[in-house]
């Protein structure tokens, strides 16, 4: 085994959920994930911000002066902004579902904690590329909200917003998303991180307007392995974390019928996402986080 291979494996081991769970600092988790992802990629991913030149446009008040092409200014004494591929994705909004069902899973990490890692990693990755990052934590209502910004120090606020989310009550997409649309006017990347235990039509009612307004929507569906392949040896009384409803289920059902139902639900969600031009990424909390992130980045690259 080469030293490089060994170091890469060691770094990836560090990104396993159980290892990340021991890290209390979400910033550190995000850094570790992103660095781990970068180590594994052959070339830098283009996440939202592209280094390839696309066009010039006149500088308008409010634009970042760092992007003024000074060479053009020297020649023409006019200020122009260089625009690059992916410039339309310069905003990243992370919509994190903090409903009670997200508290399911583990050990070592619950779905919510895993979603927080994922959110932080996305935020760090975007900030690393100087994209504006904001976040909204929601369940039935909007619990916390941070405007997207590229200013230094804003990332810490976003990470704190993500880190402070706790699982509670049920999930609704219409009301929080409606408010979200009122807050965000610029187009960008919207990452919705949830388990999506909801009616698909209800979800689409919230997400579809975003897509129609030009937002690039990505649905990260975070599920635990116990949800994907539950294993029970006897009848068990399962209590819904959100509604409190208790249903006794047979092991045969959980072994045979339930995986088919969850798979059908995932497929339906994926189909619905595709229908509105959104991406759907299934994230298994038992997978290492960099793997999940890398899969998504590769997926985005293939789409471009």
């Amino acid at each position: 085994m080469s030293p490089f291979q060994a170091s890469r494996n060691t770094a990836r081991d560090l990104l396993r959920p159980e290892v990340l769970a021991s890290l209390k600092n979400l910033d550190l988790v995000a850094r570790s994930v992103v660095e781990g992802v970068m180590i594994g990629m052959h070339r830098s991913p283009k996440f939202g911000f592209s280094q390839e030149f696309a066009e010039y446009r006149s500088y308008n008040e409010g634009d970042d002066p760092r992007f003024i092409d000074w060479n053009v200014f020297a020649r023409t004494e006019k200020t122009y902004i260089k625009r690059f591929l992916g410039d339309t994705n310069s905003h990243l909004m992370i919509l994190l579902d903090a409903s009670a069902s997200m508290g399911f899973g583990g050990p070592p990490v619950s779905k919510l904690r895993y979603a927080q890692f994922l959110s932080a990693s996305l935020a760090f990755l975007a900030a690393r590329q100087h994209d504006a990052v904001g976040c909204m934590v929601f369940d039935e209502e909007v619990r916390d909200y941070r405007d997207p910004s590229t200013r230094s120090g804003k990332l810490q606020g976003v990470l704190h917003c993500i880190d402070s989310a706790t699982a509670s009550t049920g999930t609704k997409f219409d009301k929080p998303f409606s408010k979200f649309r009122e807050q965000v006017s610029r187009r960008g990347l919207v990452a919705v991180i949830s388990d999506f235990y909801c009616d698909i039509e209800e979800l689409l009612a919230g997400v579809r307007p975003l897509a129609w307004h030009g937002q690039d929507v990505v649905l990260f569906q975070v599920l635990d392995k116990e949800e994907l392949n539950p294993e029970f040896k006897s009848n068990v009384l399962l209590e819904d974390l959100e509604t409190g409803e208790a249903i006794e289920v047979a092991p045969q059902f959980m072994r045979d019928a339930y995986p088919q139902r969850i798979r059908a639900h995932i497929d339906e969600l994926k189909k619905a996402a595709a229908g509105i031009g959104a991406d759907h990424v299934l994230v298994n909390t038992s997978d290492s986080l960099d793997q999940a992130l890398r899969n998504y980045l590769l997926f985005r690259q293939r789409r471009k």
Partner: peptide
């Protein structure tokens, strides 16, 4: 009438009640 094993689950949306059993 119900199983004594009680577990929290993320959602009962996709579950189906098993035939009533006496334990």
């Amino acid at each position: 009438a119900q199983s004594s094993d009680r577990k929290a689950f993320s959602s009962a949306m996709l579950l189906e009640t098993a035939k009533q059993q006496v334990h």
